[in-house]
């Protein structure tokens, strides 16, 4: 009971907020994995690039700043696909993953050079900061960004679910994720499907950049790096073979991190990572195909 007692509505709000943001990142990573079988470690640097764009356009009107953020992230996502993912399409998973490490370091190194032009490390993205203010709901202070994050995540997930279920490109994407060879045999255009996944994944990274800079307006080259690692862990724990289990995994790891943090005694929170990662190991040992991967053929359909 002591664990539950230490969790108040405020914490719950934060847990939903972070879970929602991580769920969006999980979709972005899971969608590209579905069609390319590639774990994109450099996903965090798309978000970082978006955050820098927000920082450098702080003087612009908010809408223009956000549009610029999306434009930069999507363009970078497409460039990554063209220059890195496509040439690697037939390589082994280890090679693809390690190449995205290199891309991740490359983008961080470039960001560092751009950032240091003004002589100081880090930039402040404050255009959307007002969302960080708290509003009072039933006597409890909850930050506005929590509602925005949950709203954006739900909206984006519902929209994506509809596109995947109802449109031709959605059908083709699901088919490609399930059995790429047969999909191509039927005339599904591989490049179009991959392009779709890459653009949507970029759009989601743009949205995450906006939401994360509200919580933490201080942007530096390692921005979103740690979040990406945590989400990658969550995605595999949830079950990377299907988009929805991956998304749930992303949500769960964000949600649980906040709750465990609140439940641990104050002087023990330093061991939070150990507790969370020990849980990760236990879950992987019990359900190696994914926590949420129920059913007969866990790996049949991957989106």
């Amino acid at each position: 009971m002591s664990v539950l007692a230490s969790i108040d509505l405020n914490t719950l709000g934060d847990a939903f907020g972070l879970g929602a943001i991580y769920a969006l990142m999980a979709v972005g990573i899971g969608l590209v994995f579905g069609v390319l079988r590639l774990v994109n470690f450099a996903y965090g640097q798309l978000i970082m690039a978006g955050a820098y764009t927000l920082a450098y356009t702080t003087s612009w009107p908010v809408t223009a700043s956000i549009v610029a953020c999306f434009a930069v992230v999507v363009a970078l996502s497409l460039a990554m696909d063209r220059l890195v993912f496509r040439p690697l399409r037939s390589s082994s998973p280890a090679v693809m993953l390690v190449t995205t490490f290199a891309v991740s370091f490359l983008l961080q190194a470039v960001a560092l050079i751009i950032d240091l032009r003004d002589g100081t490390l880090g930039e402040v993205a404050s255009a959307v900061a007002p969302l960080n203010q708290a509003i009072t709901v039933g006597g409890v202070d909850i930050r506005k960004v929590t509602f925005v994050a949950v709203g954006v995540a739900l909206g984006a997930l519902v929209a994506l679910a509809l596109v995947l279920a109802r449109t031709t490109i959605g059908l083709h994407t699901r088919a490609a994720a399930s059995d790429f060879r047969t999909a191509r045999l039927l005339g599904v255009r591989a490049n179009r499907v991959i392009g779709f996944a890459v653009v949507v994944s970029g759009l989601l990274a743009g949205a995450v950049a906006v939401l994360l800079t509200v919580q933490n307006p201080f942007v530096q080259p390692a921005f979103a790096l740690e979040d990406t690692i945590v989400v990658l862990v969550g995605v595999v724990v949830g079950g990377i073979d299907r988009l929805w289990t991956a998304t749930l995994g992303g949500f769960a790891i964000g949600f649980v991190s906040v709750l465990v943090n609140a439940a641990l005694p104050t002087d023990q929170t330093i061991f939070l990572p150990s507790v969370v990662y020990a849980l990760v190991i236990v879950v992987l040992l019990l359900r190696p195909a994914g926590l949420f991967a129920w059913g007969r053929r866990a790996a049949m359909e991957r989106v």
């Binding site: 031709t168 059908l171 088919a175 059995d179 045999l185 039927l186 005339g187 049949m300």
Partner: peptide, 19 residues
């Protein structure tokens, strides 16, 4: 090589990709 988790109609609509 049908897509077992898709509906019959979705499988047929995939065939339209080459039409």
């Amino acid at each position: 090589r049908i897509f077992g988790d898709f509906t019959v109609e979705e499988n047929l609509r995939l065939g339209l990709a080459a039409r």
